[in-house]
Structure formats: structure tokens, C-alpha cells
């Protein structure tokens, strides 16, 4: 019976850990910073578990032992007292040694983390908003500065420096498979360096409660080979594709005439709002509304028709559009590749 129970426990444990692999997990590192942290997690957990087991043994074994009958319970036995004192002092010494050792390990891990971005060639400014991420690629040439939202493309195998700040409340940037979390604080700049070893898509999440839609504030790091990344950057710098179909043309006109234009920017048109996500290449992204919906014509229409139903409290208001108008705007936005 106990064997069956322990087998079941072990299986349950293994299954639980299995859940930590892959998508968005600190225990499934895909970069040097995350590997360093994962190693620390395992080492701390293992050592603490070992110490706990030893303490439990030291506690349970004497309880199980039958105490010897003593002739004179009150007699002072200097030898036994000395032995006990030595045991306690050794245990205290070991505890101090282990704590200092763990502190040193954590200190050296921090040094490794800090060294990752020392030769970073790419600087990206990430600004937290309620509830989306503004992403700005810095460049010495002003015309090559690029602003996008929610999805962060980076070259794989190269260190990248992220400058984190916020405009409203404190958010926290966390890509578990690439790095630890770091806060985005209004009026303050935090620096986070990370590197993705291999190309891939890594999901991240706001990790500091920031209001009603905190749970729907996701982000993606998309690591690509350098050539593909450069091509992506050049594509994104282009102004938005001018609509050709009649419906899309009507959609552009509506976009510029109606409230959309007050907050959003679309490169190459008079729309220049900077308080909401840049839509110049909206359709080239994989998700809508900071990872809330996948990008599709239906989801776009749903999001515009009822943002307050999908993300209640978000700062995208309901704009009253007729069915035909909604279709036209969606046709236009869908063409912004």
C-alpha cells in the first residue's frame, strides 16, 4: 500500500514538474541569464531539502529511542554536557557556513547576469502602459528609430539591453525562459540585459499587479537569426501600405475621421497619436491587445466593436460604428502588414 502511495506521489510530482516545461517557464531556460537562475533555483531547493531531511532525522531518531533509566536524574555529567555543546556548536557553525555559501553563490550569479549585456549592440526601450507594452528600438540614426508594441523582435545569440520605464503605474517585465523579472517604474529607468540562445518565440507577462487587466498584459520576445531580424527592422521602418481596395480605402478615411486617430499612430498617414499602440504594421503582429487575442479578421472586428467586453477597463473606448463602417476599418487594418 505504501509503495503504491509513494509511486503515485512520485508520478504526481513528475507530472507537476512536466507542467513547468516549454511555454513560459523559469525551469526551462533558453538563455544564459535564465540558465544561471534555474541552476540557482535547483541548487537552493536541493540543499534546503537536504538540510530539512537531516533536521527531521535528528528530531525523530531521539524520540524513537528508548531513554536509558538513570540512577540519579539530577546528577551533573560534565562529559555528556560537553558532548551536547559540541554538537550544537557544530550545527550552528554549519548553518552559518551554508548561509554564507548560498549568499556568495547568489552574489556570483548576479555578477554573471550583469555581465551579459556589457557588449550589447542593440538597445530597446520598453515602456509599460495600462495594459500594453510600448517598444522602441534605439539607433544613432534618428530615421532608423522604430516604435512598435507588445512584440519584441531580437537577434538570436546576441545580448540585448532593455531600458524599462512606465508612464502610469509600476509594471514588471518578465520573460521566464530568458531572464528574471524587473520592475518598470514611472520616472525611473531600469536596465535588463538578456540573450536568447536559439531562435524562437518566448512569452512574457507583466509580473506586478497593475490594475484590472494585469492578467491580460502579455508580451512576446521573438528571437530570429540576425539577417531575418535586420530585414524585419527595415520592413517595420516603411510607412504603412496604402490601401488599394475600395473597402480598405473607406476604412482608412473612417480611421482618420473618427476617434481612432486621436490615440493611434499609423506611419505615412496624418494619424500621429502616441498614447496607444502604433498600428503602422499591426497585421504583421501575432496577437492583439497585448497577447489577449490572436491576430485575425474576426478578432480585430470583435476588439474594435467591444473592447470593454474583451478587456473591461482598458483605455480603448467603444467607438460607435455601423456594421459596414466596422468592416471597412477592419479591412484597412488587416492590410497593414
Amino acid at each position: 500500500m505504501t509503495r503504491v502511495a509513494s509511486m503515485a506521489l512520485a508520478t504526481a510530482g513528475a507530472l507537476l514538474l512536466q507542467g513547468c516545461a516549454g511555454w513560459q517557464s523559469a525551469l526551462d531556460p533558453k538563455g544564459p541569464a535564465a540558465s544561471e537562475l534555474a541552476w540557482l533555483i535547483w541548487f537552493f531547493t536541493g540543499l534546503s531539502a537536504l538540510v530539512w531531511v537531516l533536521v527531521m532525522i535528528a528530531l525523530v531518531v531521539p524520540l524513537m529511542m528508548r531513554s536509558r533509566a538513570q540512577a540519579e536524574p539530577l546528577a551533573i555529567d560534565a562529559g555528556a554536557d560537553g558532548r551536547k555543546l559540541r554538537v550544537v556548536m557544530t550545527a550552528v557553525g554549519l548553518t552559518a557556513l551554508i548561509l554564507v555559501g548560498l549568499t556568495l553563490l547568489s552574489f556570483f550569479a548576479n555578477r554573471t547576469l550583469a555581465a551579459i549585456g556589457s557588449d550589447a549592440s542593440l538597445t530597446i526601450r520598453v515602456t509599460g502602459h495600462q495594459w500594453w507594452w510600448e517598444v522602441r528600438y534605439e539607433d544613432a540614426t534618428p530615421s532608423r528609430i522604430l516604435t512598435t508594441a507588445n512584440e519584441i523582435h531580437i537577434p538570436a545569440g546576441e545580448p540585448v539591453r532593455l531600458l524599462l520605464t512606465s508612464t502610469d503605474v509600476i509594471h514588471s517585465f518578465w520573460i521566464p525562459s530568458l531572464s528574471g523579472k524587473l520592475d518598470l517604474i514611472p520616472g525611473h529607468m531600469n536596465v535588463l540585459d538578456l540573450k536568447a540562445d536559439k531562435p524562437g518565440v518566448y512569452r512574457g507577462q507583466c509580473a506586478e499587479f497593475c490594475g484590472a487587466q494585469h492578467a491580460n498584459m502579455g508580451t512576446f520576445i521573438i528571437a530570429e537569426p540576425r539577417a531575418k531580424f535586420d530585414a524585419w527592422w527595415n520592413d517595420q521602418l516603411q510607412p504603412a501600405a496604402a490601401p488599394t481596395a475600395d473597402e480598405a480605402k473607406a476604412g482608412e478615411e473612417l480611421f482618420l475621421k473618427r476617434p481612432c486617430v486621436m490615440c493611434h499612430r499609423i506611419g505615412g498617414t496624418p494619424a500621429g497619436g502616441t498614447v496607444a499602440p502604433d498600428l503602422t504594421h499591426l497585421a504583421s503582429r501575432q496577437t492583439l491587445a497585448a497577447g489577449t487575442l490572436t491576430m485575425s479578421r474576426g478578432n480585430l472586428a470583435a476588439w474594435i466593436a467591444d473592447p470593454q467586453g474583451i478587456k473591461p477597463g482598458s483605455h480603448m473606448p467603444v467607438v460607435e460604428l455601423s456594421g459596414d463602417e466596422l468592416n471597412a476599418v477592419v479591412a484597412y487594418l488587416e492590410g497593414l502588414k
Partner: peptide, 8 residues
């Protein structure tokens, strides 16, 4: 009028 929704 046509640039800000009525509630806003």
C-alpha cells in the same frame, strides 16, 4: 464631436 466618443 466626431473625434471623441460621447462618453469620453
Amino acid at each position: 464631436g466626431d473625434k471623441i466618443p460621447d462618453d469620453q
